[in-house]
Design a protein around this nucleic acid. Structure first.
Lengths: 80, 80
DNA sequence: TTATTATTACTGCTATGGCGGTAAATATTA
DNA sequence: TAATATTTACCGCCATAGCAGTAATAATAA
């Protein structure tokens, strides 16, 4: 189970690898510096769009998985 | 790229498969009914914890992927 | 059709997330 | 060591997410 602490560690790792400070990442992602710190600290109550902007800036993809996802994809004609 | 609209469709699909109404899912996830509706509509500004509670109730896992994730996992001794 | 259920769309309210600014504490480099 | 950069931790302010309640549609069943 992925926790927000995991997310924080992943974000920090990617940010460091990208050679960015928290402030630089914040500007790049179009969010405030405070929330970058908060997310890296594992804050649970961040807004989804804020997190997604940060993940996108770091080229991290979100995926949802479950035993039903195959059925979902074929129901929605998933290709492209 | 996963969008919030995708998330909404996935949540709704899983909820239906589980035979739950929005209100039932809300109670199960410990959130308000309004936000279940909002998420299924693709709302971007929901809180991460709220979404995670709903996903957990539906047995949907969140995963983060990137070219650096392998390096991250081995750096953090990922097994268990 | 009618009755029932579920979804959608409002409402006001409260709590708090995000923000920049600042400053202190750490970490990094010279 | 000192100087610099970064991170952490505050601070108010504003905008809004989440909430239950309600009501109006919409979908489903009898």
């Amino acid at each position: 189970m992925l926790t927000t602490e995991d997310i924080g560690r992943i974000v920090r790792f990617h940010r460091k690898k990208a050679g960015l400070t928290q402030v630089q990442l914040a500007r790049l992602a179009g969010v405030g510096k405070t929330v970058v710190f908060d997310i890296e600290k594992g804050k649970k109550t961040v807004r989804l769009d804020t997190l997604m902007n940060i993940l996108a800036a770091l080229n991290i993809r979100i995926e949802l998985t479950s035993p039903l996802m195959e059925a979902f994809r074929e129901r929605n004609n998933e290709e492209s």
